[in-house]
């Protein structure tokens, strides 16, 4: 094999992306083509821009620590006519459990159950089988419980670059939540806002409650 020109290098990387069935990390590309990481990264950005300008049926996605060619969401219905989709059939409870693990990892079962307030053994088992979470090891506390983390597959499925790509708690709060009144403390996740406790005389707290008991 002769040393490829820069144009050829781009074509080669495109070819690699075309055949890969999992996101290709830059390191993996580097082990195949004679180019350094920076050159590869530049080429990948150029390819991404090219696909974008082409306004075609697919785009280049940075996901799970690598790069992958994916179909555009607007054509999902058509793709589904061709391939047997393997949809993520998850109950709300399973999704919540997965979210808790994603945010709190590494996490043990009792911590998950503490947040959900309900037994989660069955759901953890299911998430393990779906390979969305895995066992990292065992915690050095009595009972040596298993420690869970999310997998690369989790990142792939939800299109996340890495775990830092998850919205931060601050960003989550910006999302619609009818239970959290907007006017109250939009910038932090307070337990019971300090100034409220200060402003409200203690006896008011009690008398308000007395009212409720009477009704």
């Amino acid at each position: 094999m002769t040393i490829p020109t820069e144009q050829e290098l781009k074509n080669i990387i495109e070819a690699l992306l075309f055949v890969a069935d999992t996101p290709l990390p830059i390191e993996r590309i580097k082990s195949v083509v004679p180019a350094d990481a920076k050159t590869i990264k530049d080429i990948l950005s150029r390819l991404a821009v090219e696909y974008e300008q082409r306004t075609g049926g697919f785009f280049l996605m940075e996901v799970a620590g690598g790069y992958q060619i994916r179909t555009k969401p607007e054509y999902a219905e058509w793709v589904k006519r061709l391939v047997q989709p393997n949809p993520l059939r998850m109950s709300k409870a399973a999704l919540e459990t997965l979210t808790i693990i994603a945010y709190k990892q590494p996490v043990i079962r009792s911590e998950v159950e503490h947040i959900r307030g309900v037994d989660s053994g069955g759901i953890l088992r299911m998430l393990l089988e779906l390979k969305l979470i895995r066992v990292l090891g065992r915690k050095d506390i009595p009972g040596r419980p298993l420690i869970y983390t999310t997998t690369k597959r989790f990142l792939e499925i939800f299109g996340l670059k890495d775990l830092r790509d998850l919205p931060t708690p601050e960003e989550i709060k910006g999302l619609v939540n009818p239970l959290l009144p907007e006017k109250r403390h939009p910038d932090q996740l307070p337990l019971i806002p300090d100034e409220d406790i200060e402003n409200v005389p203690k006896d008011t707290l009690i008398s308000e409650d007395d009212k409720n008991i009477l009704t």
Partner: peptide, 24 residues
């Protein structure tokens, strides 16, 4: 718990592989 519930909803809104987007 509410925070985690919102985060879960947020996750579901993403382009999910095998549902909204496909790869080889």
């Amino acid at each position: 718990y509410l925070q985690m519930k919102s985060a879960a909803e947020h996750l579901l809104e993403r382009d999910i592989l095998g549902e909204n987007t496909f790869s080889r």
